[in-house]
């Protein structure tokens, strides 16, 4: 082995090491984007027409009060012309008993008093409201047009105006005593069940795809899981494992591992977003759901 051969051997070793390192590093890099894998999906054929009624239960609670309890005022179609009618004139009779306080303090000069009274009455009636004697009569006479409207039986045609008083503005903001915030359905229909189960399955799927098969045959194991949800879509407690299917002699040692994977999958991708709130606590709702878990592949 002469000098040139030793040089060649050195170059050869270095070149082999370089090739080996390049292969190792390039293979350790993450492989290029894998083509999308066709994931088999389960199709559930739900009835469009439920065999059982799912209509909401009619609420027994009272409706809240209306926002605007006042009725629209009826507007007169002309100016209050009939006001100056001389109604007060023929009413002088009932007065005499009332003005008693005036004569009382006075001594008993009886004959002169009754005479001036009837003469005075017609004039001071309107301006002198405070006088206790005149009370019953002046009200009737002065507000004649309003009076007729208030009684209601003689309603006259009204011209449209811009007045919004009295329109129905909806229910008042004051809450009723009811604690219910939504209108629960009586029962989740098959279609709705399929819908929210699909929603949950879609949101769980990314976590399920991340799990790695622990060994050959483990993908035949099915774990039956019951999930209890909180109203906000998060899990209430750990998923309950209610059963195992598909384990045989070949994959029996993977059962515990797959159980752990199932629990991790469901815990990893909750809370679920977008579940229908009115289907939470009804029969067939998503408060408690059974799922079966299976490894991908």
């Amino acid at each position: 082995m002469d000098r040139s051969e030793r040089t060649g051997l050195g170059i050869s070793i270095v070149a082999h090491a370089a090739v080996f390192a390049a292969l190792t590093l390039s293979f350790l890099k993450p492989p290029p984007q894998e083509p999308p894998k066709a994931i088999p999906i389960e199709i559930s054929l739900a009835d469009k027409v439920g065999l059982e009624s799912t209509a909401p239960v009619v609420s027994q609670e009272e409706l809240a009060a209306k926002k605007s309890p006042v009725e629209a005022p009826v507007e007169p179609d002309s100016a209050p012309a009939p006001a100056p009618q001389p109604q007060p004139l023929p009413k002088p009779q009932p007065a005499p008993p009332k003005p008693a306080p005036q004569p009382q303090p006075q001594p008993k000069p009886a004959p002169p008093q009754p005479q001036p009274k009837p003469a005075e009455k017609p004039q001071p009636q309107k301006p002198s409201k405070p006088s206790p004697a005149a009370k019953p009569q002046p009200q009737k006479s002065s507000t004649a047009p309003a009076q007729s409207a208030a009684t209601g039986n003689a309603r006259r045609p009204v011209k449209p105006t811009g007045n919004l008083d009295g329109l129905d503005f909806g229910r008042s903001n004051n809450k009723t005593k009811s604690t219910a915030t939504n209108n629960p359905a009586s029962k989740a229909s098959a279609e709705e069940v399929a819908s929210f189960r699909g929603l949950i399955a879609r949101q769980i799927q990314p976590c399920a795809n991340r799990q790695v098969t622990p060994g050959p045959g483990a993908e035949r194991i099915r774990i039956l899981v019951r999930l209890n949800f909180n109203p906000d879509g998060s899990l209430a407690g750990n998923p309950d494992i209610t059963g195992v299917q598909g384990n045989d002699a070949g994959n029996g040692r993977y059962v515990d591992r797959v159980k752990d994977l199932a629990v991790a999958t469901f815990k990893g991708c909750t809370p679920i977003r977008g579940l229908p709130a009115n289907l939470y606590a009804v029969p067939g709702g998503w408060k408690s759901l059974a799922f079966s878990y299976k490894l991908p592949g």
Binding site: E5, T7, G8, L9, I11, S12, I13, H16
Partner: peptide, 10 residues
């Protein structure tokens, strides 16, 4: 390795 050593050396 030896092949390439021979190739370079030769």
């Amino acid at each position: 390795l030896w092949t390439w050593a021979i190739i370079f050396g030769f």
